[in-house]
């Protein structure tokens, strides 16, 4: 018997030695590993959400208002083109309706983490989410004028 044939037979015998339960245990293992990844992500997301992020809303140069993402609210703003409706719910903020032509801001959907933005160029709306530390006493976030706004 050649060495190649012997190793092929060994491989076949190896596969035959596997039992159905082995695959089950393997899948269970993979399920646990994936599930723990998912659970860790979920916990992290909840902790982030619990950190009380704040959305700062500007229209053009003007700071219109701030909204804590932990609350539930809906408000109407007057943009450069027309009215727009923003909604804060389940730790996120999104544009529900806008008077702008392309509806990019509406299609963007919700944002929820510090640094994320909602932008509506025609209405000159900028929503920027700040982390909790920017709300510490004496460190109120100065409404930034931005470096430059071009469109």
């Amino acid at each position: 018997m050649t060495a190649a044939a012997a190793s092929r037979m060994r491989l076949q015998a190896f596969w035959k030695s596997l039992r159905p339960g082995d695959g089950f245990i393997f899948m269970l293992f993979v399920a646990f590993a994936l599930g723990s990844l998912w659970a860790g992500r979920l916990v992290r997301a909840q902790k982030k959400a619990a950190a009380n992020f704040v959305a700062h809303i500007r229209i053009g140069d003007r700071a219109v208002r701030s909204a804590a993402l932990s609350e539930t609210a809906e408000f109407t703003l007057r943009g450069a083109v027309g009215e727009m409706v923003l909604r804060v719910e389940s730790n996120s903020i999104r544009v529900v309706r806008s008077s702008c032509p392309n509806q990019v801001c509406v299609k963007q959907g919700p944002v929820r983490y510090p640094g994320e933005m909602l932008v509506c160029v025609p209405n000159r709306l900028v929503v920027l989410i700040h982390g909790a530390e920017t709300r510490l006493p004496g460190k109120a976030p100065a409404p930034s004028r931005g470096d430059a706004v071009t469109y």
Partner: peptide, 14 residues
């Protein structure tokens, strides 16, 4: 008899 030593080893590791 549904588990070979590989499955049992995996179960032990888990």
């Amino acid at each position: 008899n549904q588990f070979s030593v590989i499955g049992i080893s995996l179960a032990g590791a888990l």
